[in-house]
Design a protein around this nucleic acid. Sequence first.
DNA 1: TTGAAAGCGCTAACAT
DNA 2: ATGTTAGCGCTTTCAA
Lengths: 328, 328
Amino acid sequence: MEVAARAGVSIKTASRALNGEGYVAHETRQRVQQAADELGYRANGMARELRLGGNTSTLIGMLGGDLGNPFYSKLASGLEREVRFRGLQLVTVNTDEDTRSEQRLTDALLERRVRALVVASTLPSHEHLAAEHRHGIPFVFVDRPPVGLSADAVLLDNRGGAHQAAAHLLELGHTRIGIVGDLSRLSTNQERVTSFGATLRAAGIADWREHLIEDAHDVDTAQRAVLDLLRRDPAPTAIFTTNNRITTGALRVLHRLPAPPALIGFDELDMGDILGVTVVTHDPENMGRQTARLLLERLDGYAGTARWVILPTRLIPRASSRRPPGTG
Amino acid sequence: MEVAARAGVSIKTASRALNGEGYVAHETRQRVQQAADELGYRANGMARELRLGGNTSTLIGMLGGDLGNPFYSKLASGLEREVRFRGLQLVTVNTDEDTRSEQRLTDALLERRVRALVVASTLPSHEHLAAEHRHGIPFVFVDRPPVGLSADAVLLDNRGGAHQAAAHLLELGHTRIGIVGDLSRLSTNQERVTSFGATLRAAGIADWREHLIEDAHDVDTAQRAVLDLLRRDPAPTAIFTTNNRITTGALRVLHRLPAPPALIGFDELDMGDILGVTVVTHDPENMGRQTARLLLERLDGYAGTARWVILPTRLIPRASSRRPPGTG
DNA sequence: TTGAAAGCGCTAACAT
DNA sequence: ATGTTAGCGCTTTCAA
């Protein structure tokens, strides 16, 4: 250690001084501190952890496909606040929904020995994590469940939420309802779409898939999908959008229409109340807290079977669903 | 290395096999690979980097006070996409605007030897980073400039944007204009407020500070501040909000009013066009790209003086500022 | 094609 | 109160 030399002490004494361990003469400590400052010295955390055996990291990794989405950022924020109490730090990485990226970033986090990993994955399978998981590093999956791997998860009641949305529209007399969905391979989307459809079918609407458009993954695509639905004859009198981005796209189209169809979106919107959009809402920050809870219990030694927490959703009726089927 | 033992080879051979270096017998490689799989082995990135001397990390750290804010998440996303081309990975940490947290997280990232650091700091000074910086690890400050330290930065033309907002309102005939600002210690806020005020003063409005409320850091506080302004007699006929959160708070109040004052907000809003809110906008993703550019040039060896990039802002007039001063 | 030894920066254990 | 030795898991260098 360069610092030790400059201060004229042994390497170990320098270490003691810098780490504030006892048994260092006042004057020595000062000399070391000064040398360190002059050199711009910073302890090498990697070497320390390497020496200490690897489970001293205070880093929790979180991996997500689209952490820019307010849903995930609120989730992360709830999680972060919770783990911070325990002296743990959250680092997040964004995979941009790119599978290769997700692989590489998972490796990077794991190789750097994060203490635990929170995964909001878009991958179709997580078997590549199985070995790691058996080795003891805790994973908690959020929003989307682990596949090919038994691990803790915090999920939404997607089926329940979609069911409420469908029931609400049926009650208002709608029978021709369009659905605009996200990537069809995503489990969240599948659950929302199929549950919504099942409720329609149970009400005697057998051909609900006629008005289903999926894979509208961004706002622009969603806009086009909604336009497509509206141009049909007869056009749907109501539309269900399966997430916040898609709802945004739908709003961009609908707000220009003199007599727009009814609208229900999954996920609350920042301006949902102002815009009067009926939504199926839930509490992302609470999701973060639940995630933290599972994580911390694992860190505290719980080694039982994987636990899944399913969080409730709630329908908030607002103006956008009050438009009766006749108006369109 | 446990794997080596299990495969019955030397530790070095195992290393070679796993890293795909040449000169390993086919059969040996397979044996090693199998042993690794069975053991759930994962290379220890810390040990590798330690051995390699420390500048092999592919991690870029980004530190922000409120990465959940769409402004920062868009910025991060622009940055991420850019560095990914270079095989670099972005990890972000959120300090929740907490000074102690910011300190600790900076240390954590630096101790883990990230390759470079992007800082959206809320600290009043960054002198503690000076030594580090001299040591060669590149910093790029975004949104808020470095203080007590000479480093690259990507900033917004806050003064210009605020000036445009003020000029726009003056042109429309407003003379009693409320301002709701963020934390007064933040340089961004100071620039926006003082520039806005200077433009008013130049137009003969000397008492503009009468209608200034600062430190409205979250949506709720902003709501209360706007209500406070509106209850005054005479109330302002227009309001300028210095960031997206505050604008959101203002909208919550104004949208319920029969004859709301005019409104201009700094930062674009997700639903800005739908809601018809006049804003001073800019391009956060581009900010991320510019940040990446400065960063990568440093990584490529540029060692010249610090460079500041100031990005333009643009006024988008929409319905919310078309409300004339007489209406309120 | 494989292996042995040394050392990256650090700290625990044991001297002194 | 301070120093020495060993070793964390890896890779580089040199040898076999």
